[in-house]
Each structure stands twice: as structure tokens, then as C-alpha cells.
Measured scan of single mutants.
Amino acid sequence: EIHIRTNGEEQARKVYKMLAKRNYDVKIEQHNGQWVVTAS
């Protein structure tokens, strides 16, 4: 499982799309105001 911390919604969405293209199961979560993308 991969966790990627991003500094904002826009970046989180870019990372989300990139990983989704590679057939990862991707989730975006917010932790303490930080956007974290989780891929498995």
C-alpha cells in the first residue's frame, strides 16, 4: 500500500488520476487538513 501526502486538493487529484490509470485502487483522505492519497 502506498501513502502519498500532498499539499492540496489539486495535487491530490493529479496523483489520484495518475495512480488510477495504473489500475491501483485509490482513495483520497484528509488527515489534519492534509490530503493523503492511498493506493493499493
Rank of each mutant, 00 (worst) to 15 (best):
E1S: 12
E1I: 15
E1M: 14
E1Q: 13
I2V: 07
I2E: 02
I2R: 04
I2N: 02
I2W: 14
H3Y: 14
H3I: 15
H3E: 11
I4V: 07
I4R: 02
I4L: 05
R5C: 15
T6L: 14
T6H: 04
T6A: 09
N7W: 12
E9S: 05
E9A: 07
E10S: 11
E10K: 13
E10I: 10
E10W: 12
Q11Y: 11
Q11W: 12
Q11N: 06
A12V: 01
A12L: 02
A12I: 02
A12G: 02
R13G: 03
R13H: 06
R13W: 14
R13S: 04
K14Q: 09
K14D: 05
V15F: 11
V15S: 02
Y16R: 05
Y16K: 05
K17C: 15
K17I: 12
M18D: 05
M18S: 06
L19A: 01
L19I: 02
L19Q: 00
A20N: 05
A20E: 07
A20V: 13
K21E: 12
K21W: 08
K21P: 01
K21G: 10
K21F: 09
R22H: 10
R22V: 05
R22F: 12
N23D: 06
N23C: 15
Y24A: 05
Y24N: 04
Y24S: 04
D25H: 13
D25N: 14
D25Y: 12
V26A: 05
V26L: 04
K27I: 07
K27S: 07
K27N: 05
I28C: 14
I28Q: 01
I28G: 00
E29T: 12
E29H: 09
Q30P: 04
Q30E: 10
Q30N: 12
H31Y: 12
H31L: 13
H31I: 15
H31C: 13
N32S: 06
N32K: 07
G33I: 02
G33M: 04
Q34I: 14
Q34C: 13
V36Q: 05
V36W: 14
V36D: 03
T38S: 07
T38P: 00
T38R: 09
T38I: 15
A39W: 13
A39I: 15
A39Y: 14
S40D: 04
S40P: 05
S40E: 05
